[in-house]
Design a protein around this nucleic acid. Structure first.
Lengths: 258, 258
DNA sequence: CCCAATTTGTTCGTATGTATA
DNA sequence: TTATACATACGAACAAATTGG
């Protein structure tokens, strides 16, 4: 990507936010607008800085924040890239289920494992009340509903029920979903230009109903974890509402507070 | 705190980590050593920079990282302080239980509420296997065991079973625990010089046993959330092992992935 | 294998703005 | 008002990683 192919504006009104934040927002607009697709390199820092009419230090500060928010990725000697959702980094930013460690080998860090994903159902339905409030659409509006089953070490551990607004994912089909080469968030990004930046989760303990006990191979009435996740993109816009049901008999939901 | 009262060293061997990281570690050593107690201000940036023999930009970069890790707090026009564990910020860094929002009022952000804490038991016991592996001590070594019950809106929601090495908390008594003016992590910090920086959690769904159903007022056999938390201080040293049992009938365990 | 070009990473120093006491 | 301290912005020089010749 060359600097003279980019359309941008840096609104520099006095008394507003610091300059590096204006630059950051300008960069965000460039990225959101799709002028610089995920995976592509930005022009080099010196060129962007002069094009924006700011010093290189100011530009670097703006880029620093975007790197920290996983919007950009820097590689010394190569360039700065729009972040792609296919690396381990992004896979495990949103997948937190791990086998429970054997207490006898406490110091052994359990190796994070890629889940095997199996699509159980793909439907076009009408948004439920819960879908609608989460996705900020009207109840009854069309949604795609995807049911996936995730396995670790050959054992079914997680069931995901995913709802996305059909409006936002025009042309999504079961085939395209099944043929995706990487994660589902990578599909959102490459095929629909939607980048999931962060997610809110609400977790609770529930009892496995008949369907879940069948899908996860647990006894009926066993306690399971239920995680309600709302995934957001730029501007806090909701992208996906997902209810994950986790069999925590042999696995844990892990997180780090820092 | 004046600059000439500080003992410090900046090991600057060529080929090592970048200078700002060496400065960061030097600052960490100063803080860990207790020369600068939590709540106190550091000397101003210019003085620290000249004392360390680095530029102000380099020092600021080191401080930036420590601020990001909640070790330091900056206040424009006032100074830079060693972070204290008494603010909302730190309270809610480690407390994530919120009332379940009414779906009819989805846009209303539930106001975060301070839990009412009630000490149910305080004992000096011997470390179990689980305590020992988590806290990296020998099984049978003395530990303090604290059982707390937390209520939100007058309803008991969480039970915490806390284990800490007696070795590390010499002189802890039930009275000192009960008389604490703020959170328990604030007590660790002010009375024992131990700052909890981050924590790892493993969450699973369980069935309430007789004790828990009594303490939390849930029916026997109801599903509850069980959160195993290991709290860490400087150098990844374990401080506290805690098992939280959460009644998620009317509350959620919330988190943000970003 | 080494060299040169390119790009980000680190460090320096200075000047000015803004919040606080 | 004044002094102090952090915040922002600028620009230069060199280091380190990467790539391609």
């Amino acid at each position: 990507m060359k600097i003279d192919e980019l359309q941008f504006t840096v609104l520099t009104q006095p008394g507003a936010a610091p300059l590096y934040r204006l630059v950051k927002r300008a960069l965000l607009r460039v990225i959101e607008s799709g002028q610089c697709r995920p995976g592509l390199a930005l022009p080099n820092e010196a060129d962007i800085a002069t094009a924006f009419g700011v010093s290189i230090g100011t530009l670097r500060r703006a880029v620093d924040e975007l790197v920290h928010e996983h919007v950009l990725v820097r590689r010394q000697g190569r360039g700065t890239y729009v972040a792609l959702h296919n690396s381990d980094r992004f896979m495990f930013q949103f997948f937190h289920v791990e086998p429970r460690p054997d207490p006898r080998y406490a110091d052994v860090v359990p190796k994070r494992e890629y889940p095997m994903v199996e699509c159980v159902a793909f439907e076009r339905e009408r948004a439920s009340e819960a879908d609608a409030t989460a996705l900020r659409i009207q109840p009854g509006e069309p949604v795609f509903r995807i049911d996936n089953r995730l396995s670790l070490g050959g054992r079914a551990v997680v069931h995901d029920r995913i709802s996305v607004a059909a409006q936002m994912f025009k042309g999504l089909t079961e085939k395209r979903l099944l043929d995706r080469p990487s994660t589902i968030y990578n599909l959102y990004q490459t095929d629909f230009g939607i980048t999931v930046l962060r997610a809110q989760e609400r977790t609770r303990a529930c009892v496995a109903d008949a369907t879940m006990s069948r899908l996860l191979g647990v006894a009926n009435g066993m306690p399971v974890l239920e995680v309600h996740r709302l995934a957001l993109t730029f501007g806090e816009k909701p992208v996906e509402f997902r209810v994950s049901t986790v069999n925590t008999l042999h696995h844990d939901y892990v997180s780090v507070l820092s």
